[in-house]
């Protein structure tokens, strides 16, 4: 086992003087970073909520910031809750999925603050989120289809082909959280490596270039991957609804 590699993948490190003793120590930095992003989200929403009014009867025009946030929320709602066939499931899961999306977005964007890194650059948080969605999607499959319907859902095609598909869909099911979480991790870690390489190749005093690349890459790729992760979560849970 190699300590550089371990640090790159897991954010673990071992005693560098004696790498043979494999005592994984979780890189506490990343844990703290994820708490910071949670705090930003919680305090940010508390602050934003202060000036807002819940006007059910459209009596008065909402303030500019409220209107903007409402448009954002509406867009998020059509993308996430619209991915479900039944309104009930969509409404039930929308707050969780929206929080998940915003949380991942802030985790990815945390690297914009100098001295901080995205916790999604190590595999721990993506895997835990991927497993969470995996468990949730199976819970909904059992809940909506019943135990027998759940077992039947492994036959993806009718007839003999469905029977052939059973072992395959089980392996596919296991592979799903892996690809789900490694997609987020691989892109964010790759982006961090790319920026690091460019920082080493181009002299640091070319500040505008570095700033531009940092902002472009972190904002753009971080945003896209947060969206992909959340939309895939919607699709995985939405598959529980089946054909009815």
């Amino acid at each position: 086992m190699d300590h550089i590699g371990l640090e790159m993948v897991w954010g673990y490190f071992t005693d560098p003087n004696d790498p043979s003793t494999f005592i994984p120590l979780l890189d506490a930095r990343m844990l703290v970073m994820s708490w910071i992003s949670m705090l930003i989200i919680i305090f940010g929403s508390l602050v934003l909520r202060r000036g807002m009014k819940f006007n059910r009867d459209f009596e008065d025009v909402p303030s500019k910031s409220q209107a903007f946030l409402e448009i954002l929320l509406k867009g998020l709602h059509t993308q996430l809750a619209g991915g479900f066939q039944s309104n009930k499931v969509g409404e039930q899961l929308f707050p969780m999925l929206a929080t998940l999306g915003v949380y991942i977005l802030f985790l990815n964007w945390l690297a914009l603050i100098p001295g901080m890194a995205s916790p999604t650059e190590t595999v721990n948080i993506p895997i835990s989120l991927g497993l969470f969605i995996f468990v949730l999607s199976h819970y909904y499959r059992i809940k909506l289809n019943g135990p027998i319907g759940y077992l039947k859902s492994y036959m993806e095609a009718p007839g003999v082909m469905g029977v052939i598909m059973i072992p395959l869909s089980i392996v596919g099911e296991i592979a799903r959280p892996i690809s789900h979480s490694f997609r987020l991790y691989g892109n964010l870690m790759g982006g961090a490596i790319l920026l690091l390489v460019i920082a080493n190749l181009v002299p640091l005093w070319v500040v505008p270039l570095h700033t531009f690349l940092n902002f472009f890459y972190i904002l753009f790729v971080g945003g896209i991957q947060a969206m992909v992760f959340t939309l895939l979560s919607v699709a995985y849970i939405g598959m529980a609804e089946g054909d009815h």
């Binding site: 190699d2 590699g5 691989g186 790319l194 790729v221």
Partner: peptide
Amino acid sequence: STAIYGLVVAMLLLFTT
């Protein structure tokens, strides 16, 4: 991002002792 995966593996290989 598929090229980025190639980059990740290339970097892991280059910087693994």
